[in-house]
Simulated assay, not measured.
Amino acid sequence: MLMIGIINELLRQVQSQPSQSIAYFLCQATDPRLNNATGILRSLIYLLVRQQPHLITHLRERYDTDPELFESGNTIYSLSTIFDKMVQSSTRATIFLLIDGLDECEKKKPFQKKGTVLEQVKEQLRQKSDGTFLWVSLVIQEMQNCQLLSEMVDLLEKAPRGLTLFYNRMLLQIQRLERLKRESCMLVLSVVTLGYRPLHLHELCLLVGMPKQQHGFDDLENIIAICGSFLTIRDDHVYLGHQSAKDYLSDNKGSAAVFPAGHITVHHRIYQESLQNLSTRL
C-alpha cells in the first residue's frame, strides 16, 4: 500500500511537471511473467517508451538486427543494454524508477556448479569487512577485473582486513608502478587531498600541469582510474571516495608517501600553476 501511495503521488507530480518520467513495477510471485528480472526490465522499458516515444528507436534498432530478441537465452542482457541506452539518452530531467515486491521475485543462484565459490566469497567479505560497506565496495570493484574464479578467490584471501590495511595495499600498488605513472598518481592524489572543494577535471588538469601534454586530459582520467580506490568522478568533478581516504592520505603512512616534501610544497605548486594559468589567459 505504501508503494502504491508513492506511485500515485509521483504520477501527480509527473503530470504537473512534463520534465519528469516515472516507471514502476510490482513483482508477483504467482505470475511467471512478473516474478523475474526479464519481466521487470520489459515493464520499465514499456513504460518509459509510453512516456517518451522517441526512446523506442533504441528498442527498434536492436530488434531489427535480432528478431529473436525476446525469445533467446540472452534476453536479459539485451534488455539491459536497451534500458541503459534509453536512460542515458532521455531528454527528461528526472526519471523515477520504482520496483516493489523484490522478495517475491524468482530466486536463482547465479552460479550452479559455482555455488561453493559464491558462498566462499560472501563469507570472506563478511569476515574481513568489519561491518564497513566501503571496504566491501572497494574489494568488489577490484573483483570486477577478475576473469577466473581462482583469481577472485585468491584476491579475497589476500585482501587485508579493514580500511587502513586495504589503503596500505592500494598505495603500495601505486608505488610499484613505472616512474611516470607513479609520479602522476601521487601528484593527482596530493592536489585532490589538499583541495578545499572537489576540483573539476579541467581545473585538476591545469593544477597538475597536464594541459601542456598532447593527451593530457585523457591521461588524467586514466590516472584517476588507477587511483580508483581513493578517487572517484561525479559530474566531471573529482572527489575523494570517502572521508577515510582523506584521513589516510593526510596522516601517517599515506601522507609520507603522497607528500614526501610536506604539504607546503604541494600548496606552492597549486599556487604557481594557478598564477601561471591566470597570467596566460587574462
Rank of each mutant, 00 (worst) to 15 (best):
L231R: 00
L201M: 12
Q175S: 13
I233N: 01
D235F: 03
N222G: 10
R182G: 07
S229Q: 09
R179D: 06
V192M: 01
Q243H: 15
K246F: 09
I174N: 12
V188T: 07
D236V: 12
R269T: 10
L231A: 03
I223R: 04
P198L: 09
F230A: 10
G241S: 13
K253I: 12
Y271L: 08
I264A: 07
H237A: 03
D236A: 12
I174V: 09
P211K: 03
L206N: 05
Q213N: 09
Y239G: 00
N222Y: 09
I233W: 00
V208K: 00
G216A: 07
V191P: 00
E178P: 11
L231C: 08
S244D: 07
H200D: 10
D247K: 12
G241K: 07
F217S: 03
F259H: 11
L220D: 00
L199R: 00
H200M: 04
G241M: 14
V258P: 03
H267V: 07
D219I: 11
L231I: 06
V208T: 15
L249I: 08
L194A: 03
D247A: 11
L177E: 13
P260D: 13
C227V: 06
C185P: 01
Q173R: 11
L199A: 03
C185R: 02
A257N: 11
C185M: 12
A225R: 11
N252Y: 05
V258C: 12
Q214W: 10
Q243L: 13
C227I: 06
Q243N: 10
A256T: 14
F259C: 10
S229R: 06
I223W: 01
T193P: 02
V191R: 00
L172E: 08
T193W: 03
L177R: 07
S184E: 05
Y271M: 09
S190Y: 10
I233M: 02
L201R: 09
R197M: 11
S190A: 10
M186N: 04
D236F: 08
L189K: 03
Q213D: 11
N222C: 04
A261L: 12
L187V: 07
C227D: 01
Q243I: 14
D219P: 02
R234F: 04
I174S: 05
K253N: 08
L240C: 07
D247P: 02
S250D: 05
I264V: 09
L204F: 11
G209M: 07
L220Q: 00
F217G: 01
R182A: 13
T232D: 06
D236K: 06
T232W: 01
G209A: 09
S190R: 04
A245M: 09
L206Q: 06
S255W: 11
A256Y: 02
L220A: 03
C185L: 13
Q175N: 15
H267D: 14
R269E: 08
Q243A: 15
Y196N: 13
K253G: 12
C205A: 08
